[in-house]
Design a protein around this nucleic acid. Sequence first.
RNA 1: GGUCCUGUGGCCGAGUGGCUAGGCUCAGCUCUGCAAAAGCUGCUACAGCGGUUCGAAUCCGCUCGGGACCUCCA
Length: 487
Amino acid sequence: MQPLFLYNTLTRKKEEFKPINPPLVGLYVCGPTVYSDVHLGNCRTFISFDMIYRYLVHLGYKVRYVRNITDAGHLEGDRDEGDDKFAKKAKLEQLEPMEIVQKYTVGFHDVMRAFNNIPPSIEPTATGHICEQIEMIKQIMDKGFAYETEGTIYFDVEKYNKDFSYGQLTNRKLDELLEGTRELSGQDEKRGRLDFALWIKAKPETLMRWPSPWGWGFPGWHIECSAMSSKYLGDVFDIHGGGMDLQATHHTNEIAQSQACNHKAPVNYWMHTNMLTVNGVRMSKSAGNGFLPGELFTGDHPLLEKGYSPMAVRFFMMQTHYHSTLDFSNEALQASEKGFERLMDSYSTLQTLKAGSSSSEDIKALQTKCYEAMNDDFNTPILVAHLFDAARIVNSANDNKLSLTQNDIDLLKTIYQNFVFDVMGLQTEQENSKANAVLAKVMSMVLDIRNKAKVDKNFPLSDEIRNKLTDAGVQIKDGKEGSSWKI
RNA sequence: GGUCCUGUGGCCGAGUGGCUAGGCUCAGCUCUGCAAAAGCUGCUACAGCGGUUCGAAUCCGCUCGGGACCUCCA
């Protein structure tokens, strides 16, 4: 097997991937906070890691893929106080906090399915791991890196930085970080400006609360990922992923928590996906420029000229490297839509290709190039370029402009199966199969009638049939060996 | 203000020192009764200025533009 290289945020270098216990691989990805609909930016991260997961599996690794659901403790605002997001949203929608969680978890899963993402091996929730989080906080306190102020526990960043190094993930020194933060206001209970909450004391009106050694409260945001990742993947595991916006705070604090706990760096490879932008500006909840996946599919949004299918969107994302920003525009989306269609059409053509006695193309070399692209930090844009080469070869062979042996045809089928479907997770958009079977018969009959008209040189009739079919959304392609159609 | 990323042909987007991806668009050709589809060909670009080098989109410096993080966000 060729070595796989991936970009490690921690070292800011492409490194060869060497799992701790091959063929086992531990992969943790920060999942969504389920207090509102997922928007497309989140989806990009999950689609990227779905592709990464799929490729690792394709290479033969046994991957335990953990992606959490944050359903508690994620605070509003920059201070570690006030209600959590669920309680706030619950008040707004007049629902129980757990009703909010349920509603948006279901919605999240629906969207993941639409994008053909494989569910993770384990999808733990924060509320299901309160004990583990309390236990971890206790350990951090025992090691002396956290302190209690009136029922709230804070992580002592400056003390931690004396023994370890805080902020390696963003390559920054503590002093620089301290300069960048705002002054502590009088009401703050924490000692250091960068200190963050591990456990937050519940107010009398707080709905989501749990008992702890420090009284009733709820966990801080960062501790859940540390607690759950170590529970399911061990104190040190292979890959931790998430969006780039989590790098500076959330992931930096995860490292601090784990290291304070057991004096080991928790993760060997940190991988971050880049942001999605709309007209050059980052799509985010706070900027309010995001559209929901549902709106994207239907086209029901002021920024969208039309709807785009989940697979066209997924393909669009695959045409950009996960580490680059991706700008959303109607033109770009429509270009991808057509390209995707061409690729999938060539796949159908491939199924009917007749073998020749010799080959003029080196399909094996093409396959090797596909692996090289993926082994170079999951370079899907290059992979796509090679797959379009394959499409060109298939179409040319179909036109009898070049010849392929049965072995080559079979190898092409393997390439499509492996890379288009298994690794990139694309799929043909299937309609109801029973209706399809009927339609196929009807179309075959219609094309027969039209063909007879053509033989009789009754072109007005054949053109009328073609035009009316076009209006109905069926495209006719006249080839040398008869006509074919597609929707 | 601090830290960092980025600027590629009409559009989107790969590419870290020579062999100059790919998709979409546009034009021409082949095929076709005519179209469409498909194939072929063309449009050959790297913000600007300077430097290093036999050779730079790729390395260095400066200038200008865009963006991110430092505060909840994938």
